[in-house]
Design a protein around this nucleic acid. Sequence first.
DNA 1: TTGGCATATCGGGAAAAGTCGATATACATT
DNA 2: AATGTATATCGACTTTTCCCGATATGCCAA
Lengths: 100, 100
Amino acid sequence: MDQVEIFKALSNKTRLQILGWLKEPELNFPEQQNADFENVGVCVGQIQLKSGLSQSTISEYLSILQRADLISSTRVGQWTYYKRNKEGLEKLSEIINTAL
Amino acid sequence: MDQVEIFKALSNKTRLQILGWLKEPELNFPEQQNADFENVGVCVGQIQLKSGLSQSTISEYLSILQRADLISSTRVGQWTYYKRNKEGLEKLSEIINTAL
DNA sequence: TTGGCATATCGGGAAAAGTCGATATACATT
DNA sequence: AATGTATATCGACTTTTCCCGATATGCCAA
């Protein structure tokens, strides 16, 4: 993954917020019932609702974050759940500490 | 400084390179004579030369990086020297570790 | 004070990103 | 099979970013 693409993914207020929300899902998405936050995460619809942007926009934002390895997804039935990707974020931390 | 602006500043290959070059100026700018890398840094012309982009572009890129607190500048005569801003980079590291 | 550098700023054209509504796909229920 | 729901993709339009050349500014030397 290109470093520039990671930073581009983070260059947007909503995408940064999403990442923040996914850091504490139980706090930010209390309405999601039967949630297995640890293993699957939060579904697109909940994130879209919270963001106030359109469904298509959020779907695209999530795939941008995923391409940057900052989140990962799991499909369960008709839902796609997204969660924080710890490894990707650690790698980002490392980039900043070693390359910049 | 807005977090988004910091990441925007980093969302460009050349700007990332500049930051990398300024991390080890003595290595990346050996041609700069009488250089006080520690205190003042590297002048715009050297950075421009190395980047291959136009003078105006590099001047603007440097001010973008400076606005994001990632570098700082010192004017000496007709030259402006830029250097890495350790504090800003540490703050960025902290943002990633606490907010995302 | 005039001319010459180094850097900054301005104006613009091309490319990319932001964002939407409409449509497609995929799955679940009846 | 038909309908309903969740998400993804497409096409379009607007805004922002990239990057340039031209010009302005600031400083120094003759």
